[in-house]
Amino acid sequence: MDNEVTINIKESGPPRFRRGTTDIVFDVFNIAVFSIFSLICIFPFYYLFINTISDNDLVGKGLINFYPVGINLSNYLALRDVSDLGNSFLVTIARTVLGTALMVAASGFAGYLVTKHKLWHRSLWYRFLVITMYFNAGLIPWYLNMLMLGLTNNFWAYIIPGIIAPYNIILVKTYIESIPKELEESAIMDGAGTITIFRKIIWPLAKPILATIAIFGAVGNWNSFQDSLILMQSSPELYTLQHRLYVYLQSASNLEAIMQGGSGASQVLTNSLNSKVVKYTISMATILPILLVYPFMQRFFVKGIMLGAVKG
C-alpha cells in the first residue's frame, strides 16, 4: 500500500561486493564530494545562527566565522522591540494553522466524495477540479479577480483560495481507494450516513496521507510570500513573515531606524545592535520553525515529492 512507502535506505542500493582499488578510490571521492556538498547545505544556517548568539561588536567587524564568541540571546529578546515583526508572526501563524486545517479538512472530504460512484456526474466534477492544475489565467487576471472579490488587504485572502488544493484531493482520493471497501459497506449496513462514515472510518484510516498534505501545506503557508506581496499592498499590518523579512532585507537603513528608535531596545541589550545582526536574527527566527518541524517531516518525503513533482 502507498502509505508503507518510506525511504527504506537500509535495503536500498546495490548488494555488497568485493572492492578493488578503483572502487576504493571511487568511494573516497564519492564520500568526499557528498561531505562537502552537505557542508555547503548546512553551513549557511550554522553561520547565521552563531552570528545571532555572538557578541554583536565582533559580528559587526565580521570576526565570527566558525564558532560563536560571547554567547548570549539578547538579540532574540530584542526582536520584541521590532514592532511590525510581532504582527507578521501572528498573521503567519494564524494563516498556517487556519489555512492548513481548512485545506486538510476540505481535501479529505472532497477526496472521499470523489471516490463515491453515486455522486451525481462524478467524473465531470472531478475533471473540473483536476483541470485547474494545468492551466491558470495568469498573475494579473488572478489579481484582478481577487480585487473584484474584495480579497485584497484582507486576511481571508490567505485562507479561502488555499482551501481547494486539487493535487491534494487526488492524493487523498487515491489513498482512500486503497482502503478496503468492506469497511465502508459494513458501516452502511449499520445505518451510518456519509458524514458519519467519513468521520468515523475514512478520516482515521486516511491519517497518513492527511498528515502528509498537512505538513507540506503548513510549510507552504509558512513560506508564503507572493500573495502577501501582491494582495496586501496597502496593509503592511497583514504582511506575512517572509514579506516582512523581504522588506527588511531591501531596506537596511530603515532597519537601523527601527532599532535606534526602538524604545526599550537599548536598555535590554548588553551589546550594541547593528543592521547586520538584526537581519540575521530575524532570518534565523523565521527559519527556526521550519528546522524544528523538519525531523517530523522526513518520513513523509516520498509522498511529498510526488506532490512537488506535479505541482511544479
Binding site: 553561520y47 513560506n223 510570500f225 517572509q242 532585507l249 527559519i287
Partner: peptide, 13 residues
Amino acid sequence: FISWVLIYAIALA
C-alpha cells in the same frame, strides 16, 4: 523547505 526570501537572506550573510 526554505523560502526564496530566506535564501536571499542567507546569500546576503
